[in-house]
């Protein structure tokens, strides 16, 4: 029950936040701009490029967003008023993680839809192969974003300085989330979707569990 209340609350807060406005408006705009800025994609669908780009930018933004949000709320004693009520501590973190992740997924889907529309208008309906590639890129993007969000959660909980939490989560987040994409770059025969999921799921859960344990022990 408290998860649902907190999740809807966080969702309301995030979808109106400045960073999310950048993602809501900026990323779809980027999809359109890419078509005009990089006309020499020679038949390579804009949607695939958008998916790759989003994976990188959203990953960084999401980890910074979640870590600064937690560190800031922790420093400003926002959680004190939640914790004196029948609220489980892990629900506070999970609701924030899920809200940010859902916002990113929606922003990514919108951007990708824009890319697909441009593709259809310019090069016609993309082939089955390109759609499959786009789907793969999307799965890898979501996997990287999940890792980045969980790393952002970890640094938000464990570091008090907002600037340090943001820098570390962006740096470590981008490095660690690359693990989801690296293996397929070196070994072509690997199933990129499977590898991304196999890396992302345990890593995300591990960082989230560590964050929850640290948060539960935290003295407010």
């Amino acid at each position: 029950m408290s998860f649902k209340i907190l999740f809807l609350d966080e969702l309301k807060g995030f979808y109106k936040s400045k960073i999310m406005i950048i993602l809501w408006i900026g990323m779809p705009t980027l999809s359109i701009l890419m078509h005009y800025l990089i006309p020499s994609t020679e038949g390579f669908p804009v949607s695939s490029l958008v998916a790759i780009l989003i994976s990188y930018i959203s990953g960084m933004l999401s980890s910074a967003m979640i870590s600064t949000s937690i560190a800031n709320e922790k420093n400003n004693h926002v959680y004190d008023l939640f914790l004196i009520r029948p609220v489980k501590r892990y629900n506070i973190l999970l609701s924030k993680f899920c809200a940010v992740y859902l916002c990113l997924i929606i922003a990514t889907v919108i951007s990708l839809a824009m890319g697909l529309i441009i593709d259809i208008l310019t090069i016609g309906v993309p082939s089955q192969y390109f759609l499959e590639e786009t789907f793969k890129s999307l799965t890898i993007s979501f996997s990287s974003m999940a890792i980045s969000c969980s790393i952002g959660t970890f640094f938000g909980v464990s570091i008090s300085s907002i600037a340090a939490a943001a820098i570390l989560s962006v740096y470590v987040g981008s490095q660690v989330s690359a693990i989801a994409t690296l293996p397929v770059l070196f070994i072509e025969s690997l199933n990129s979707v499977l590898i991304a999921l196999l890396v992302a799921i345990p890593l995300t859960f591990t960082f989230l569990i560590i964050s929850i344990v640290l948060f539960s022990k935290k003295q407010f």
Partner: peptide, 11 residues
């Protein structure tokens, strides 16, 4: 409980 310095979601 009225905390000394609790913050709120400012938005």
């Amino acid at each position: 409980y009225h905390p000394q310095e609790a913050g709120f979601h400012r938005w």
